[in-house]
Write a protein that binds this DNA or RNA. Structure first.
Lengths: 339, 339
DNA sequence: TGTTAGCACTCGCAAGCATCGAGTGCTAAC
DNA sequence: GTTAGCACTCGATGCTTGCGAGTGCTAACA
């Protein structure tokens, strides 16, 4: 059997009706409201075909039809209405840019901002940074035996951590050490820096305090740069959708959000382009009734992070895709201006 | 009427039974399980008195009794069992200290750690910092026209923000400016620094770039130090309590957690000592079925932050009080070692 | 005078049952 | 190919009923 033009139009009407109403769509209501100009009986016939083909699901024999994941997939791939809601988009853009003005807040508050503006749960994956190259290193005294290590990379990203240093080192000495480290490490990747520092810790004949300081530093650098980090914003948004009126489901959803490693894997998969994953396509069982829209953002030369939203499969895809595309552009723009 | 010793014992038994079971406590079960050595009829008489006095509530005539907020208050004030669960406490202490090893993670991850260990929603209020005094300032170049401003205070707290600076300033110039600023501002409070910087911005005859950089900086300092910040951890913990099986209630709870200003006001109220607030004592309508336990922690000389947990009034108060006391000690210890 | 056994009574809860109505599938007519 | 008509399905709603945990009261007892 073939999905002809009329079937497509009916399917589109069902999906869009269901997205708004969250109740099974009946043939009678559809023939009245959709403006297709055919009677309910005709629509019933087509619906029977679409059900047979797996695009529609009947919760029970005397209820209307509900779109399946396959239907959403078809809808997103072929049926998305284009270029609407310009005014909504520009106001969201304004709200977003005014909130994430500086780079630090971009990643930490980005998730909250995206969630606020979409009313879905937002995910932000920070770029992996082991292969950024170092531009300079600085040591700033912050107290007895403590210094702040600042690493400036060629993408302008700062990683700063507090480390322990020898009490014999004053501000001037730390400044000099910073310059020395900069000279030796400029142009190396963070991974190389980490390995070099482990080398130092093993071979240097300086006193134990400096040794342990450097080892500390290496460990910190490794921890902070080697692995992806993911931020979740607005997890409670899900409670506003009737799909999650059951607390057990909401709980399972939120627990899944805590398992950062699987989230990271999911986000990394759609790393290079705007993508929609529907139901089981997410690869996470708890999200099999959800859809995930992800978009990459770039920081410096080719290092990508990912932003995403997650919500019930019943989602206004067109609007959300436009929004995510916009957020991605804004994040990338914000991060490249600051270099 | 008087609350005699036997009434107290019965009330204690009811509260503790209810905390575990979350079902109204009946006279028959109580006489069998509590080991009070009196019959159910006697307990019924006492229960009737306690109900009349406002300590117990009857959901309906043929259900057992449920403790009122007044009962919890009496329980917390007079009836708390002392010095138990040492082993649980030490294991929690170990888990906590291993997770919040350095100062940066202490505040940001503290909320998550406390929530994980208590299974309640955790709150961490950062100390107000406008009256810390400055020890030194540093400017670190992080890219074209951008520098990292690091403020070191006498409590060892670092506030760092990224600011815009003139492109004509290289690393050496920034270092010198940092030294100059340090000389002028050492010993001033952050508030004075902010005002001084506004003065600079208004009066200086340097070029516009430096002016705007300084103004930027002043605004940032004001933003980051003037106001309290509160972190919420484990908001979804609430979903595990049957009291919040209704999604509407859970939603109201989480929405209330988003209103940071009222949270801050609540936390600041119990600022100086370990405190329990029950039901309406929290001062937040959405939390009128909740209890809040807060404990102060100290950073440097006298600057206090507050940690707290929030959950249903049906809460194992003795254990949680011990835990919060411990967390408060650990936070204070961790923050004073790092000075 | 305080405690206890006994008993009638209350009322939420779950199960059973009838009713309702939105929506379907099928058939026959257009 | 489309449509009107009609019997049928089945979840949702609402009502009744029986059950049982728990109460309050009374009278007997120590």
């Amino acid at each position: 059997m073939d999905v002809d033009a009329r079937k497509l139009r009916i399917l589109q009407a069902i999906v869009e009706d269901y997205i708004l109403s969250n109740t099974p769509v009946g043939s009678r209501t559809l023939s009245k409201t959709s403006g297709l100009g055919v009677s309910s009986a005709t629509i019933r016939n087509e619906m029977a075909d679409l059900t047979e083909m797996g695009y529609l699901i009947q919760p029970h024999v005397s209820a209307g039809r509900v779109p399946s994941a396959k239907a959403y997939r078809l809808y997103v791939t072929q049926l998305l209405p284009q270029g609407m809601h310009e005014e909504e988009l520009t106001s969201a853009r304004r709200a977003f840019t005014s909130r994430v003005r500086d780079m630090e807040s971009l990643v930490s508050q980005g998730a909250a901002a995206i969630s606020d503006l979409t009313h879905y749960t937002a995910l932000v994956l920070t770029p992996r940074q082991s292969d950024l190259t170092v531009r300079s290193l600085h040591l700033v005294p912050v107290g007895r035996e403590r210094a702040l290590l600042v690493i400036v990379t060629d993408s302008g990203v700062i990683r700063d951590t507090s480390i322990r240093v020898s009490s014999r080192l004053d501000a001037q000495a730390l400044y000099t050490i910073g310059q020395m480290l900069t000279e030796r490490m400029r142009g190396l990747t963070l991974r190389e820096v980490r390995e070099m520092l482990y080398g130092y810790a093993a071979s240097s004949d300086a006193d134990a305090r400096v040794l342990s300081g450097i080892a500390d530093l290496a460990a910190q650098v490794e921890k902070q740069t080697g692995s992806d980090r993911v931020m979740v914003g607005g997890a409670h948004s899900i409670l506003y959708y009737p799909e999650y009126a059951d607390v057990c489901r909401a709980r399972a959803f939120m627990d899944a959000l805590e398992r950062k490693d699987s989230l990271i894997a999911m986000l990394r998969q759609g790393e290079d382009q705007l993508s929609v994953r529907i139901g089981t396509e997410t690869g996470i069982p708890e999200f099999s009734d959800c859809s995930v829209i992800t978009a990459p953002y770039r920081i410096g030369r080719g290092h990508t992070g990912v932003i995403g939203i997650i919500g019930p499969t019943r989602m206004p895809y067109a609007r959300m895709l436009d929004m995510m595309r916009m957020f991605s552009q804004e994040m990338t723009a914000a991060l490249s201006v600051k270099e």
